[in-house]
Structures are given as structure tokens and as C-alpha cells.
């Protein structure tokens, strides 16, 4: 996306634009921490399962509910499976799902927002009423109902989360389109005979990229929480899939005897969401002043 932005704003060298993002990521300690956490998680998800000596599904009833030890750093579960190994496989699943769902939300929302803002009129009106209606529901409740009616499965959870979550992107993109269109009259761009498409392409995309990326970054955390939450309720991944929420749910029968079963996935979910939130916050803080300055200079 930022590639587009760079190309469509030729007055800014490509390098400068990348540097802006890089600086945004490294301005504060907290943002660095967030970026570090996210990178670490990706590394774990990619390499972890290969390194781990255990099979996430292999049962070893002789070793069930073993407390954390050197052999099993995070203990074993009720079927004797290594919790850490399962968590690492779960990381793959969670990150993959979160990114896929966010990407769908983003594309769908951006498309709707562009159409609504660009076409205007009754199309805009109708789409925005749809957005209002969607936003009128607490997201998880709606996703719960949709996923539930579709039937319990991880795919259905993804569908449900994608369907309920695109509306805020649509709103954001639409308002950016409108504000650029408004400025279009203020600036002389049109008088200079530039086409509408040119104006939108040149001024809109760069303006909308940063807020959309910020929203998406923060959204990844939300999707991870949503997936885990729905799986926790029994609607998502079914055992023995090593999904974090599912693991947490099956650990609840062993609160007294095996406290690590709920806490290990809990901490990992929290760290992941925390990382994305830190990153999103940092990006927002770092990009918004530049962003507004950029808007001013149009």
C-alpha cells in the first residue's frame, strides 16, 4: 500500500516515504517493544513448530497434566500433549487467521468506502445505512450469531468476523474521499484541467493509507481476541486443533490442578494483542502529525 502512496505522490521521494514509516516504528520505546513482540511472534509461528521436538496432537496419557518442567516448559495437558508445542502451532493458526480476516475486512471496507464516497447519491446513502446497521451491533455478538448459525468451525468464525468488521474501514475511507473531494474545489487542481481520477489518485490514496494501516494494525489484535473468544465459546476450532481459545476452554476443568492450562494460552493471547496494540498506537501517534501536515500542504 505504501508503495502506491509513494508512486502517486511523485513530489516525495520514495525513500523519504519509507523512512517516515520506519521512523514511525522506532520513535518511542513502547512502539519498539510492540514491533519487537510482533516480530518475535512471527518468528515463533514460523520456526517454532519445526524446532519443537513434540507432536502437537500426539497423546501421552502417562504424562498427563504434568507441571512445567525442563522437558515441558509449559507443562502438559489432560492428554499429555506438550502445551508449548501446541501454543507454537496455535500461533501459526492465530496469526494466519488474524491477517487473513483483517485483509478481507480492509479490502471490503475500502471498496465500499470508495464507492460510497465517489459515487455519492443514493448509493452512498444505502451503503452508509448498511454500515450504520452493522455498527449498531456489538461485533462479537453478531459474529457469534452468524458463526453459530453457519455451524461451529474455524472457517465460519473467520467469515463471521470478516462480515462484521469491515464497516469501520468503509466509514474511514469514505470520509477521506469526501474531504479530498471537498478540497478539490478549494485547490486549483480541477481548474488546471486535471481529471477527477487523477486528483483522487494523487491526493486520496496517500491520505488514506496511513489511517487505514493504523486501523488495520489495531484491528489485528481485535480479530485475535475475537477468534479466541468465539473458539472459547465452542464455535471456532474444535479439539484437538491447537487454537489458543480452544486450548483455554479445555483447560477450564483443571483450574485447581493444572493452572498453566488456562494461563499459558491466556498470557500468549495477551502478549500478541498487546504487541499489535502498541504497534498500532505508536503508528497512529507518529503518523498523524505528518499526516495532518501532509493534508495541509495539498
Amino acid at each position: 500500500m505504501s508503495e502506491d502512496a509513494a508512486n502517486s505522490a511523485p513530489h516525495r521521494p520514495v525513500g523519504a516515504r519509507w523512512r517516515r514509516w520506519y521512523e514511525a516504528l522506532t520513535t518511542t520505546r513502547l512502539t519498539k517493544l510492540g514491533a519487537g513482540l510482533v516480530c518475535a511472534l512471527f518468528a515463533l509461528a514460523v520456526f517454532g513448530p519445526a524446532v519443537s521436538p513434540y507432536d502437537p496432537a500426539a497423546q501421552a496419557l502417562a504424562h498427563r497434566l504434568e507441571a512445567p518442567s525442563l522437558a515441558h516448559p509449559l507443562g502438559t495437558d489432560q492428554l499429555g500433549r506438550d502445551v508449548l508445542t501446541r501454543l507454537l502451532h496455535g500461533a501459526r493458526l492465530s496469526l494466519g487467521i488474524a491477517i487473513a480476516v483483517t485483509a478481507v475486512r480492509l479490502s471490503l471496507g475500502t471498496a465500499v468506502g470508495l464507492v460510497a464516497g465517489y459515487v455519492g447519491g443514493w448509493v452512498d446513502e444505502a451503503l452508509m445505512r448498511l454500515v450504520d446497521t452493522l455498527l449498531a451491533f456489538p461485533g462479537i455478538v453478531l459474529a457469534l450469531v452468524i458463526a453459530g448459525i453457519l455451524g461451529p468451525s474455524l472457517t465460519n468464525v473467520m467469515v463471521a468476523l470478516a462480515v462484521v468488521g469491515w464497516a469501520s474501514y468503509a466509514r474511514l475511507v469514505r470520509s477521506s474521499v469526501l474531504s479530498v473531494r471537498e478540497r478539490e474545489f478549494v485547490t486549483a487542481s480541477r481548474l488546471l484541467g486535471r481529471s477527477r481520477a487523477h486528483v483522487l489518485g494523487r491526493h486520496l490514496i496517500p491520505n488514506v493509507v496511513a489511517p487505514v494501516v493504523v486501523l488495520a494494525t489495531l484491528d489485528v489484535g481485535g480479530v485475535i481476541l475475537g477468534t479466541a473468544g468465539l473458539s472459547f465459546l465452542g464455535l471456532g476450532a474444535q479439539p484437538p486443533t491447537p487454537e489458543w481459545g480452544t486450548m483455554l476452554a479445555s483447560g477450564r476443568n483443571y483450574l485447581r490442578t493444572a493452572w498453566w492450562l488456562v494461563n499459558a494460552p491466556g498470557v500468549l493471547i495477551m502478549l500478541t494483542v498487546f504487541g499489535f496494540n502498541l504497534l498500532g498506537d505508536g503508528l497512529r501517534d507518529a503518523l498523524s502529525p505528518t499526516q495532518s501536515a501532509h493534508i495541509e500542504q495539498l
Binding site: 513502547l30 479466541a228 493452572w259 488456562v262 494461563n263 491466556g266 498470557v267 498487546f274 496494540n277 498506537d281
Partner: peptide
Amino acid sequence: QFGALVGVSMPNFWLGYLLIIVAAL
């Protein structure tokens, strides 16, 4: 701020169990 960020990042189903383990059990 740090606390608030941890707060928003914490899945409440886990927080619930954490509280059950500590305060109830």
C-alpha cells in the same frame, strides 16, 4: 498508560479465570 494498554489487550475470558484461580480458589 501501560496498565491501560495491558487492560485492553487482556482477553476477558482469561482474566476471569485468573481471578477465579487467585481470588476464589
